[in-house]
Nucleic acid binder design. Sequence first.
DNA 1: CTATCATGTTACCGATCGGTACGTTGCGTT
DNA 2: AACGCAACGTACCGATCGGTAACATGATAG
Lengths: 201, 201
Amino acid sequence: MPNTKNLDPAASVEHAPRAAEKILNVARDLFYRQGIRAIGVDEIVKTAGVTKPSLYRSFSSKDDLTASYLKQYDREFWERFDEAVAAHPGDPRAQVLAFLARVGKRSQKASYRGCGLTNAAVEYPEHDHPARIVSEENKRELRRRLRAMAKAMGAAEPDMLGDGLLLLLEGAYISAQLFGTGGPARAVARNAELLIDASLA
Amino acid sequence: MPNTKNLDPAASVEHAPRAAEKILNVARDLFYRQGIRAIGVDEIVKTAGVTKPSLYRSFSSKDDLTASYLKQYDREFWERFDEAVAAHPGDPRAQVLAFLARVGKRSQKASYRGCGLTNAAVEYPEHDHPARIVSEENKRELRRRLRAMAKAMGAAEPDMLGDGLLLLLEGAYISAQLFGTGGPARAVARNAELLIDASLA
DNA sequence: CTATCATGTTACCGATCGGTACGTTGCGTT
DNA sequence: AACGCAACGTACCGATCGGTAACATGATAG
């Protein structure tokens, strides 16, 4: 429920609250770049050019807004993932490598700060926190898919390879923000290639 | 400067403020388990059984206390790293694998929440923040050493392998807290083994 | 024209944030 | 015994936290 107050979704599509959209866009940007705990609701509404009650009419709490941001991030993540998959039909090795190459490329941009879902999980260790629930679900599914793709590649130990690819990916996310341009994240696709080929033998 | 108020280190070793030690121990525990931004100074002093002025007599600010915590974490990190190195003299491959195996093992404990330095860098994106400075320095040195070890192994592309090992390690840190027991972090040493051997060919 | 209702605004809440002024206590020195 | 001084505690600061009550506005439907 990104918007728990919308009782009639069909009607609200037409003239959806302009404020809610602006708020979510601003929150998305600030949360990603500076961290969720670091950003207060005052800064969000100020940047969005709206006021606090506008925020709390569309989102029941800051946690709800946070979860909405992460759910949007989750959707866009799978769009990017599925793009890489669709680009290489029937070739899971190329699919994974295409996705990792794209992450490696994005990781070299100065504005890149890794995966918003991963970062949120670091910020919120409590397992029942709305933000963490979204993140964990995304990562569970990602693990499932990577393992399935490793199996489709014909790996000797598909779960081992799938987990290895996940480790490389998460490592790239984190290294990107630790090292910035020129960091190890650049090497993620090449290392994945080596690991995959070593796992197929 | 973990303790900016200590003007005479030699003398303060003997009868250092009892409160400062308790505070640092408590901060270390709370910061690691719950995150730095999530913990207020009030909670630290309350848990430590002291009062706020005692904290601010030994640490000039919360950021200073945070940096002290991370510097201690950094020291203990290199102790663990050097233990693995010392266990396999002249065998960089075994050194790396021993360290990663240990991380993989620790990652299965419920209380494990990855690397405190990595987590701090996620919490503090600003490059001039005291916490981030300590973290970035640690990671730069770690990258340098892993690349040197990859070179000593005789890797065809030592920087590539060193970065790959760093990606696996950071991925293990993050995956440990994302998935907990049974997560992909368990597979870090085995995947590193495959990657190393593939890089030596 | 007017009643309706979602959206927007002003002004405020108690709680907690990091941080401090100032008085008290306890111990070693002479 | 009286001093000196470092370490400790009480009580407080302004700022900001997430969140809300009450009112204004503006488009739409009858």
